[in-house]
Simulated scan of single mutants.
Amino acid sequence: MNLPDGLLAGAWTTAAWLLFIPLFLRVVWRSPWRRLADPSRLNAWLGTIVVLVLLWSLNAGIKPGLSLHLIGAAVLALAFGPGLAFIGLCAALLGVTLNGDAGWASFAANALLMGGVSVGVSRGVLRFSERFLPRQLFVYLFANGFFGAALSILAVGIAASGLLVAAGVYSIDYVRSEYLPYVGLLAFSEAWLSGMVITLFVVYRPQWVATFEDSRYLLGK
């Protein structure tokens, strides 16, 4: 998380940019921008990005590249869909990078880790719950808002650790003993914060939650 410049070799940085640029362009092209035509939804999306910039700036670091902070990807993915969530996370990363808490050359790697991995996992949990779990409000909130958020940040921590180990920056024994246990603890905070925010959205502003449908989770229950 928040990889600084110079930590990864040039080949890894180049590969990250080659993956990120076409992915970002594809997401921008296919995202449902009409969803933000409603001023209240647009304000919610922009406001969430600003909050994430603040959250990402409050991080604890063990060593360069091994930092810990909340991500909030599950909230964006559930509220606005995976496309707008990924773009929003990239915008939050832009703010953090401008603030000097991440490297410009490493922007693509950071975006793929904190945006791509986290949104992908959140989307996967949502699709799994829609297909295999009962269609109930509690199931939606717990499986996606709580469990999905925890799983997404765990996936980011594991992916970042794997990248740093593969690049020869740290040994697998070091990240396994000195970093990953703290990512597991952080997952509880991510789960509670994201779960509470999504619960408040569903209760008071359900029109902001694109993945929530009254007909699916409330009617007839």
Rank of each mutant, 00 (worst) to 15 (best):
D5L: 05
L8T: 14
L8D: 14
L8Q: 14
L8H: 15
G10A: 00
A11H: 07
W12E: 07
W12R: 08
T14G: 02
A15S: 11
A15T: 09
A15E: 06
A15N: 05
A15M: 10
A16G: 14
A16Q: 11
W17S: 05
L19A: 15
F20I: 03
F20G: 02
F20K: 08
I21S: 02
P22F: 00
L23Q: 02
L23I: 04
F24V: 05
F24D: 02
W29M: 07
R30E: 11
R30T: 13
R30G: 08
R30P: 07
S31F: 13
P32Q: 15
R34W: 08
R34N: 11
R34Q: 15
R35F: 15
A37E: 07
A37Q: 08
S40Q: 07
L42M: 09
L42A: 06
L46V: 14
G47C: 12
G47Q: 13
G47W: 12
I49A: 11
I49W: 09
V51I: 15
L52V: 04
L52Q: 08
L52W: 11
L52M: 13
V53H: 06
V53C: 10
S57C: 10
L58S: 09
L58E: 07
N59A: 06
G61W: 02
G61A: 14
G61E: 13
I62P: 05
P64F: 09
P64I: 11
G65V: 07
G65P: 12
